[in-house]
Write a protein that binds this DNA or RNA. Structure first.
Lengths: 109, 109
DNA sequence: CTCGTCTCTTTCCATAGTGGAAACTAGCCG
DNA sequence: CGGCTAGTTTCCACTATGGAAAGAGACGAG
């Protein structure tokens, strides 16, 4: 099981464990849809504690998938989050990998 | 953030961490598609060590998602795996949850 | 009957991931 | 200055995960 295994078993290319973690998947999905979102909004939307969200964002930034922008709203500094180009690609690649795993949606359903 | 949070944040109903784990997701997808599959075939298809596959199968059985059937092929006892009804439902529910998270596939792509 | 093989299963172990709580930091207001 | 808000980081306990190796059950060979 070596040379041909790549031909035989399901491909995992694009599968990204950094993104796959449930909360990070939700974060990426939200940012992908929103384009850019405020930290607090993400936190509320996903119902995460600030510390947990902050840590996941750190992981995503370390991977180069997310970047921050600081801006003032209501006299207060807030952090805006968005996917980098690389993050968007990785996210889309991960979705493609998931689709490859689960197969095409059954049209009969 | 309590009563209305269920209305606000993304729904996670159906999201099943037991199934979400990468290798278990692949196992469930394979069994869902195959109906029933031999342990060895699953192992080869997914390129997993016997011990790892066995442990994941145990987890899925403990959850009531998979059942085994022992049968002889080529003079040797082999284990056949399949999703239970409950497992199939949980798997489909998880896929639905994933779709709810990532949103509808972009037709423009 | 005993031995070796094949097919899983279980145990042991080391490592990494995860979240909650709380302490900490930075900017702004009064 | 003290207090408040918005994030960040640290501390901690717990769970998950995989690899390697030992076990266990069934079967054929001799």
């Amino acid at each position: 099981m070596s040379a041909e295994s790549a031909e035989i078993h399901d491909r995992l290319e694009g599968f990204d464990t950094t993104i796959h973690a449930p909360n990070r998947l939700r974060i990426c999905a939200l940012l992908d849809a929103a384009g850019e979102a405020e930290f607090g909004l993400v936190q509320k939307r996903l119902d995460l504690s600030a510390s947990v969200l902050s840590k996941h964002v750190t992981v995503l930034m370390d991977a180069g998938y997310v970047e921050q922008r600081k801006a003032v709203r209501d006299t207060r500094q807030r952090v805006w989050l968005r996917l980098t180009r690389r993050g968007r690609d990785a996210y889309q690649g991960h979705l493609a990998a998931l689709r490859a795993i689960v197969g095409p949606p059954d049209p009969a359903l």
